[in-house]
Amino acid sequence: MNNRQNVMIKGTKNGLSLQLNDTCSYDSLLKELDDKLSDLQGEDIESPLISVRILTGNRFLTAEQQVELKERIRHRKNLVVEEIVSNVVTKEESERIIDEQLITSVATIVRSGQVLEVPGDLLLVGDVNPGGTVRAGGNIFIMGALKGIAHAGFTGDNEAVIVASFMTPSQLRISNCITRPPDHHDQDEHHQMECAYIDDSQQITIDRLQILKHIRPNITRFKGGR
C-alpha cells in the first residue's frame, strides 16, 4: 500500500509551501488538498494574508488546472498563491529558452532604417551604419564598425555586453540603460576592439576588450582546455 502523501504542507519564513505528489491522479490531489486546507483554516477570518508557494515537481499543469488550484486556495480566506513552480516547461517555453541561449551569426551591413533583432546573442560580421539598429536578447558582438544603435539584453539582462571592432555608435543601450558616447570618444591611432557594459554604478561604460573576461567571467561557455 502506498502511504505517500499527495500534498505536503510546510511552513516557511515567507508563508506556506505546498509540495504536490507528481505521480497521483489530479482528482486525488484535489481531494487531499481540500482536506488539508480545511484543517488549516482557522476561525479568525481577519488574520493577515499568508503567501502560498506551490511546488508541482514533474507534474504538468494546464492553464485551467493552475487557475483551479489558485481558486481553491484563495477560497480559504487568508491564503493567496504567490507562484507555481514546476520542473516541467511547455514546448514553446523550452524553444524560447533555447533561442535565448543561441548565438545567431549574420554577415551583412545594417543600413540606415534597418533593424536586425535576435532572441539570444548576436555575432554580426559587418558594419552597423548610422541610422541602423541591432537588438539582441543577449550579447552583441560586431566584427566591424558600430556607427548606429546597439541594444543588448533588451529582455532585461543587465549582464549583457556590446563588443565592436570600431566603437563609434550613435546610441548604446543595455537592458534599460541608455547612453550616448561622449563627443571626445575616438578610436586610438593604434586601433583596438572595445566593449560596453553596465558598471557597478549602473552606468554604461566603454573600455578595452581585454577587461571583458574579468568583468563578465561567465561569458565563456567553452568547457575544455585552458
Rank of each mutant, 00 (worst) to 15 (best):
N2R: 10
N2L: 05
R4Q: 13
R4D: 14
Q5G: 11
Q5V: 03
T12Y: 05
G15R: 05
L16G: 15
N21H: 05
D22E: 12
T23I: 06
S25T: 12
Y26W: 15
L30G: 01
D35H: 11
D39I: 05
D39N: 15
L40D: 00
D44V: 13
D44E: 03
I45E: 11
E46C: 05
R53W: 00
R59G: 03
E64G: 13
Q66R: 13
V67H: 03
E68P: 03
R74W: 08
V89N: 15
E92N: 07
E93K: 04
S94E: 15
E95G: 01
I97F: 08
E100S: 10
E100I: 12
I103A: 07
D121I: 00
V125I: 13
G126L: 05
V128I: 14
G132M: 04
G137W: 01
A145S: 08
L146Y: 14
L146D: 07
K147I: 00
K147F: 04
I149V: 06
G156K: 03
A160G: 02
I162D: 09
S165Q: 12
P169Y: 10
P169T: 00
L172G: 01
I178C: 11
P181F: 02
D183G: 08
H184T: 11
H185A: 12
Q187G: 10
H191W: 06
Q192Y: 15
Q192H: 15
E194I: 13
I198D: 04
D200T: 13
I204T: 12
L209S: 14
I211H: 02
I211V: 10
H214S: 14
R216E: 08
I219F: 13
G225Y: 09
G225C: 03
